[in-house]
Design a protein around this nucleic acid. Structure first.
Lengths: 139, 139
DNA sequence: ATATACTCCACAAAATTAGTAGACAATATA
DNA sequence: TATATTGTCTACTAATTTTGTGGAGTATAT
């Protein structure tokens, strides 16, 4: 039950972006350097975030990336869903037809319930609160 | 954020076992047939459950597996922890030294919090309630 | 004795994840 | 308009994890 590096890198990217909000677009290259991530691989992660409309980019000199919405409106569930896929602990939660026993399966009910609760947890954590907490930590 | 088949198979094995409690040991072969799982692979999963002390076995004819404790005392967190490893969404949650930035990392705090809450959710679901719910569903 | 079922090591196929290479496209600025 | 800077994109490869198989052996109730 580990998250892939996509989610980890994505979150670090977004935190970095939120931290530098209001300073104009931020270079992918700078974030990769600050966070010590492969620039190429990070781009691939960020591509997903952009496709999902969570970030946007400006090309050319003085270009870079910026958050589309307010950090307070971006939840961990949003981030993980984009980068990891929907929070279904097993396929049959999302996709009844992936198992021909889904309708009568006792185990499935468990996973549906657990997935729902985990989703609630992740929805309760926003990028905004993360950045706030960071700031108060440093002072 | 998917669980591996180990957890899925393991839960189905345990549900089957709990359902047949009080009838003496249950054959792995029978469960594999009922649940339509590879006998060999299921054995490997069950081995982990046995090593962890959750189930025990009797050899020879009339042998088989049985639950060690009461279904009411076995939580989803126990099961997933055994079969999937500890619920740390990222390595640094369990293992600070896996990342040299763990002490100052803002993202880590998020994962620690999320992992703790997810653990609470899974601890709230026991094998006992699952079996009960199944029974009431069938009536 | 022997049938039944568990034990355990080693191996292999499949799938997923992680990461790299390099050419191309857009654009702010001089 | 030239050019430096930065994002875009496709294709490929390497590493890891997951999932599963084979087969020889061991314990024991009948």
């Amino acid at each position: 039950m580990k998250l892939s590096t996509r989610s980890r890198y994505g979150l670090r990217f977004l935190i970095d972006l939120a931290t530098h909000a209001g300073e104009g677009p931020v270079f992918l290259k700078d974030i990769a350097r600050r966070q010590d991530l492969s620039e190429k691989y990070l781009w691939n992660v960020v591509l997903s975030l952009k496709s999902a409309g969570m970030v946007n980019s400006v090309r050319g000199p003085r270009g870079g990336y910026y958050l589309v919405g307010s950090p307070a409106d971006i939840t961990m569930n949003d981030i993980v869903s984009i980068l990891e896929g929907p929070i279904s602990l097993v396929d049959c939660v999302e996709n009844r037809s992936s198992c021909n026993k889904a309708d009568t399966c006792a185990a499935r009910d468990v996973w549906v319930e657990a997935a729902g609760k985990i989703k609630n947890v992740l929805e309760g954590i926003t990028l905004g609160t993360i950045v706030e907490r960071m700031a108060s930590k440093q002072s």
